[in-house]
Measured scan of single mutants.
Amino acid sequence: MSIQHFRVALIPFFAAFCLPVFAHPETLVKVKDAEDQLGARVGYIELDLNSGKILESFRPEERFPMMSTFKVLLCGAVLSRVDAGQEQLGRRIHYSQNDLVEYSPVTEKHLTDGMTVRELCSAAITMSDNTAANLLLTTIGGPKELTAFLHNMGDHVTRLDRWEPELNEAIPNDERDTTMPAAMATTLRKLLTGELLTLASRQQLIDWMEADKVAGPLLRSALPAGWFIADKSGAGERGSRGIIAALGPDGKPSRIVVIYTTGSQATMDERNRQIAEIGASLIKHW
């Protein structure tokens, strides 16, 4: 067993022997301040990774656009098919120029040779490549099948209805392509620590998230040296922004954090800054 596999296998073990965790309302004060600064709703939840206990939450059962955070769930569904012998990570998928959609920095470079399922998941999570996500959605049967996968996990809230990039439209009061912070946090925890996926697939999923290259201005910008984070960000229309993450000190994750916002007129930089400040408060009061 590799060191990384050992780390993920012992996530519940280490967490069980940690000192009790206590909620700190100071972080919620910052979440509410972010709402004021952005002029928009902000949803927040913080779960203990081992027990699933909610440590703090704000608007945990209000719907927010998922945006690209759905790509972690998508690759979880792909990995479940791999575990069941219905898919192979090494299978190569070929596609054409007509398949390319807006923001496809990886797939646009491989029109000639195609990409493997493993490479597509890596591109979808680490670079948020939209064509990679659409190609992977095709392998599982489309958005409705991802929703069905989530329902089978016990998540009857999260739903995907459309493809990239239309799913980022974020129309107010439109339930399409949305989740709730509580539902997303619980589902992410199941994917990373539950028995739904094999140990190898859980490790692969967290490795992809740990290698995320496009979430630097968010929670990662607030992390002290030595902290662990595996995350996936999302951005959408109407001032929408979000991030889902597993993080913790001492090089291992111990909490799940989900943050979503929508309806702001603020710039992307300002949305990023507010999420980073929430992260800084979380870490300060850990």
Rank of each mutant, 00 (worst) to 15 (best):
A215K: 04
K213G: 08
L47Q: 08
G236Q: 01
A40G: 15
L150Q: 06
R59T: 02
P143N: 05
T112L: 14
R202A: 11
L167S: 03
L197T: 05
S233G: 09
M67A: 13
A84N: 14
L137C: 04
A246S: 10
L28Q: 10
L197W: 02
H156L: 13
V157I: 14
D161V: 06
E145N: 12
N152S: 13
T186C: 14
A230G: 12
H285R: 11
P253S: 10
F64N: 00
D33N: 11
R162P: 02
S254I: 10
R59Y: 03
V78L: 09
M153L: 11
T158F: 06
L150S: 06
V31W: 00
R220L: 06
T27R: 04
D36H: 14
P249R: 12
S80A: 14
A132K: 01
V78K: 03
K252A: 13
G85L: 09
L74M: 09
L137K: 00
H24A: 14
I54Q: 08
D83P: 01
D48C: 06
R63A: 07
T193W: 13
N173I: 09
I54F: 11
C75V: 09
D33A: 13
T139M: 13
T193H: 14
D83K: 05
A148V: 11
E61Y: 15
E102D: 15
Q97M: 12
D155A: 00
L205I: 10
R189S: 13
L79S: 03
V257N: 04
S104V: 03
P65K: 02
P181D: 00
P224I: 02
D83L: 03
D113I: 10
L137V: 08
D207N: 14
R273N: 11
L223E: 02
S233C: 03
N98M: 13
I171K: 15
A280P: 02
I243M: 07
G141W: 02
Q88A: 14
G154S: 08
S104Y: 04
G226F: 06
W208M: 08
K252I: 14
L197S: 06
A132F: 01
Q86A: 14
V214N: 07
H285G: 09
C121L: 05
A280C: 09
T27V: 15
L74W: 03
N98T: 14
L74E: 02
V101W: 04
S264Q: 05
N152T: 13
D269N: 12
K190S: 15
R59W: 04
L55A: 07
I283C: 08
Q274W: 13
L89I: 09
P60H: 15
S240H: 06
D48P: 01
T69L: 03
K30V: 13
T139R: 11
W227H: 02
K190L: 15
T262Q: 10
M209Q: 02
H285I: 01
T187I: 09
T147L: 06
L38E: 06
I125A: 03
K30C: 07
D129W: 00
A133L: 00
S221G: 09
E166Q: 13
V42R: 00
L146K: 03
Q88C: 10
R41N: 10
A170M: 08
T186L: 15
A245S: 11
G114A: 05
D174C: 06
K190N: 15
P224L: 05
C75W: 02
F149T: 08
H24W: 07
G76N: 00
D48Q: 07
K190D: 15
G216P: 05
R41S: 10
T187C: 08
S68D: 00
E166D: 13
L49F: 10
E195P: 15
H156E: 12
L219P: 04
E119K: 06
P181G: 03
L73H: 06
E56M: 07
P217S: 09
A235R: 05
D48F: 03
W163Y: 12
S128C: 04
M115Y: 03
L188M: 14
N168Q: 05
A185Q: 01
V78N: 02
G263M: 08
N130K: 02
H94W: 12
R162V: 02
R189K: 15
S201Y: 07
E102M: 14
L188Y: 08
E87M: 11
T178D: 00
L188T: 09
W208N: 02
R162F: 03
G279F: 05
T116D: 08
P181M: 02
V117Q: 02
R159F: 07
G239S: 05
N130P: 01
T107E: 01
T178P: 00
S221N: 11
A77H: 12
I229Q: 00
M67D: 05
L282Q: 06
M67W: 02
S96F: 12
S254N: 15
M209V: 01
T126N: 07
R238S: 11
G194V: 07
L199R: 13
E119L: 02
I259D: 02
L89H: 07
L136K: 04
T27I: 10
W163T: 10
G194Y: 09
L188R: 01
T112C: 09
P224M: 05
G263F: 05
K144Y: 10
V78M: 09
A280H: 15
K71W: 00
G239P: 02
Y44G: 01
V117Y: 04
M127A: 09
S68A: 00
D48N: 07
T262P: 03
E61R: 13
T186N: 15
R81L: 10
T131P: 03
A148P: 07
G242I: 03
R92Y: 11
